[in-house]
Amino acid sequence: MLFLLVYQPFGLSAEIESGEHSLLQILALIIFLSTVVFIVLYVSQFVLRKRFPNTKNNLKSFLKWFLIDIALIVLLSAAVEITFDNEELNSVNAILDELVFDVLITYLALVFVLLYPVLGCSMYVHLKQLKNDKQQLKTDLDVVTTHYKIASGNEELIKILDEKGECKLTIPLNNLYAIESKNQYVSIKYKRNDALIEQNIRTRFSKLLNELQDIPSIFKCHRSFAINLINVQELKCINQKPNVILDEASVLKVPVSKTYIKDVKSLLSKY
């Protein structure tokens, strides 16, 4: 409706300037045209496209459906107009003039008038999708880079600080398995020489996670637990509650709360 009021195509500007029709009649015409477009696009988007699915989302497919939508709009408008038109079509020339010539002219006019705003909307959606794809590729690249550093043995060591800011533990990132909150302490679960070790350090759980926030693989999965996604073996339910298994022997299990389960599943697909 806004498009029709601003651009006034299909002779609307002449109708408005002539003064032959009242404002109410013009608004009724605009509402009628908008309703026809709504009905056609609803049927096209949610009925026809499901019956004739197209796997190739390219310009050719876009233009094909655009032309089909325009044809449906014109045919429905013509059918409604003929149904409620008081003039009788007695001659062949009148029928051809009303059903063929007028419909064809309206169809061509609609194609030219609507092509540029529809293409503009399509271009906007395409550019927005490209931006999202770029962000996703950047995220995936960060994950790959992290894995490469770990596999090549060139990753930086991480430092665990106590409440006074003193370094109490330094370990390679791929040796860290989990962090557990224990009141005024945190329990660091890591491996050294293939042995699982737990070391308690006096500091707040939230403070430590804030210090390690730049490491994407360290993720809080419970109010009292954080895990290193690199070392997660699997996610499974134990006693009907989700847990992550962090070692091959299934000794180290960490619960996952409902708040974080969706994010954990999404992140594990990358790791």
Rank of each mutant, 00 (worst) to 15 (best):
F62L: 09
I68L: 15
D69L: 07
D69S: 11
I70V: 15
V74W: 06
I82N: 03
T83H: 13
F84R: 10
F84V: 05
D85H: 10
E87T: 15
L89K: 14
A94F: 08
L96D: 02
D97W: 08
E98D: 06
E98F: 11
F101Y: 14
F101V: 13
D102G: 07
L104R: 10
I105A: 13
T106G: 03
Y107P: 07
F112H: 04
V113N: 02
V113K: 04
L114Y: 06
L115R: 04
P117H: 02
L119R: 03
L119T: 09
C121W: 10
S122G: 15
S122D: 04
M123I: 11
M123Q: 08
Q129L: 09
Q129C: 02
L130W: 13
L130N: 15
D133N: 15
D133F: 04
K134I: 04
Q135V: 09
D140K: 12
D142F: 14
D142Y: 13
V143C: 08
V144K: 13
T145L: 13
T146I: 08
H147S: 07
Y148W: 10
K149L: 14
I150F: 06
I150W: 01
A151E: 04
A151L: 12
E155C: 02
L157G: 04
K159G: 00
K159V: 00
I160A: 04
D162G: 01
D162H: 00
G165N: 01
G165E: 01
C167G: 02
C167V: 14
I171A: 04
L173R: 08
L173K: 09
